[in-house]
Nucleic acid binder design. Structure first.
Lengths: 354, 354
DNA sequence: TTGAAAGCGCTAACAT
DNA sequence: ATGTTAGCGCTTTCAA
């Protein structure tokens, strides 16, 4: 087994030129005569040269700036979790000279997103990680990134038309089916089920609708006992939201509620607990502190973990591997749909990112 | 934000010594005066020095050989999953000069294990990752490794007496509680529950008994509806095993079965399915192909996943961090207790390591 | 258009 | 015991 690696120096010797020249043809930097290029290419064709990515990284001594364009972590615990992933990525990659900057935008304000996106562009990052929760305004932004040839990785919400370097997240349709399976499990009485989208603008969020579609799809194929599934779109900021919710819960045949958003889950749980309705099944998303409280008390039955922390962390990793090591990132990195119960909760909390 | 990284050179300057001295205290190579070491340590305590692994790898042109001593992946899909984790680790760490070699042993034969362990020793690895499924023959092997000062990491099965660099696995007691929670969920009829230990090798039984203890502990605190919990120890190799099982299933008040072993799960499922008893809840372990079949058909309700793929991957990572970065591995790395349902199954199968 | 040479941060051999 | 220095493989600057 020939374990000896070919170095640029070897190629230079074989071609009878200097390492500088080899490097120039390797990277097509120009300033090489036809004759010299010819000689080098000939050797390159004969042997299988594999550049040492480590040496490359050390040699170029490049510092990369990666910007994370995500909803303000201060406004929303879900995005605070994502932010923790970024912090972890920061400590992990700092030694390689990777700098991660957070550009948070206002949730609720699409203008804020567009404005921040512009700022990202002006900051001239080497890569961008973003969660494009606003479909409509996201695409033009990505076109800008593309024009400036800034690689961008998407997480949490997928926009395939954006053609990112990589998307990291979950299969929302299947996520809905998981929720449905848990909702159905052990149910022996028929009745109604509610799907709640508690979001400022749920119609713009394809992934919420996908969850609902998956949820319904499950029950289309599992008819016993029979359920009537009702969908509700509430804006938790609205003044009449509590009233709407109360009315919904007053349905005596209501067997379960599926909340498609993480923050919404605890809002419903809170209301449910106040009314002492422990018999209504509640399934929602993510290990927000508020949610954990209600999961522990038994009001929330299951949480599906989207693991924003790990999503963000991995997004950075893909970007780094692309920039530093010229490795191709997976265009689709789908996370497992983790089911969190009162019993396995702690095992999830104590295990890190790894 | 201080983006500037601290180099050995900086530490040397601050401590008023040379880089060589800093390197020597960093790696405890000795040949350093008390005074000098003192000065360097003082600086080290004040600042957060994180070595650049790229430079380290390039500088010490060292190649590490790590050997994985695990049951033959070709013989068992569970270990094939572990093998996939090794392959991922290989691609992840290859650039740092880490080479991973697989030394598979025959599952049935303990002799094969001993033989392979000897081969591992002859191969003179820098580290070993292993799943010690044979308790008795494992300890002497580990003593050999220890004598040759080869660090070894255990996963899947813990042998605390082996005092490994690190153990990677799950909390069995809590695992039983998770199973119990799922067994209890939505149950509206009282009756009996069966805990089955289907194992030919009673050495592991501490592990299995912990699961049972957790299972019972749950029901001690959750009395509605009331269940009678019966425990059974069968050896699936015994001739009268099918008869025992049949008799067990004939209990008309049997509501659910918790199987503490992965292989046993599908055995029970098979029997259950033959008798058309879909109303008896079945909870077991691990994503073995056989288990997945019955999970898909609905005979198995939940599987608790040990994630051998990630366990193996992480085992390598701990070893690498120990060898390359002199970082201390956690002596206990407990994994989340993953709940697998028919709906989230595929998301687990397709997802990478994370 | 070219080659020589100075790094990148760290290791390790070699003089003091 | 300590400092100096020559690499590791590649990039990049600077003369020529």
């Amino acid at each position: 087994m020939n374990t000896k690696n070919i170095r640029i120096k070897d190629i230079a010797t074989l071609a009878g030129v200097s390492t500088g020249t080899v490097d120039r043809v390797l990277h097509k930097r120009g300033r090489v005569s036809k004759a010299a290029e010819e000689k080098v290419r000939k050797i390159l064709d004969e042997i299988d040269y594999k550049p040492n990515p480590i040496a490359r990284s050390l040699g170029s001594n490049k510092k990369y700036k990666i910007i994370a364009l995500i909803p303000d972590p201060g406004q929303n615990p879900y995005w605070e979790l994502a932010n923790q992933g970024l912090i972890q990525a920061q400590t992990e990659w700092a030694r390689y000279g990777i700098q991660i900057e957070l550009f948070p935008f206002d949730m609720g304000g699409k203008e804020s997103f567009k404005k921040k996106a512009q700022e990202v562009l002006s900051a001239q990052p080497d890569g961008v990680l973003t969660a494009p929760i606003y479909y409509d305004e996201a695409l033009p932004v990505f076109n800008l990134f593309k024009n400036h040839s800034i690689p961008y990785v998407l997480f949490n919400t997928n926009i395939p038309a954006a053609h990112p370097l990589s998307f990291i997240g979950q299969d929302s349709f299947q996520s809905g089916k998981v929720a449905a399976g848990l909702m159905h499990f052990g149910q022996h009485l028929s009745g109604t089920l509610a799907v709640l989208h508690l979001d400022e603008d749920s119609h713009n969020s394809i992934h919420l609708l996908e969850k609902e579609r998956g949820f319904r799809d499950y029950f289309n194929n599992n008819g016993h006992p029979a359920f009537e599934i009702n969908e509700f779109n509430f804006n938790p900021e609205d003044a009449d939201f509590p009233g709407h919710l109360q009315h919904l819960l007053s349905d005596p045949k209501l067997r379960g509620i599926f909340v498609s958003t993480s923050r919404g889950t605890s809002l419903v749980a809170s209301c449910l607990e106040k009314q002492g309705k422990k018999d209504i099944r509640l399934i929602g998303y993510d290990m927000l502190t508020e949610n954990l409280k209600y999961l522990r008390s038994g009001t929330i039955d299951f949480l599906i973990n989207q693991n924003p922390k790990r999503q963000a962390f991995l997004g950075i990793s893909h970007l780094v591997n692309h920039l530093m090591f010229k490795e191709k990132a997976p265009d689709l990195d789908l996370f497992p749909l983790e089911v969190i119960t009162r019993q396995n909760l702690d095992s999830y909390l104590s295990s890190g990112i790894h």
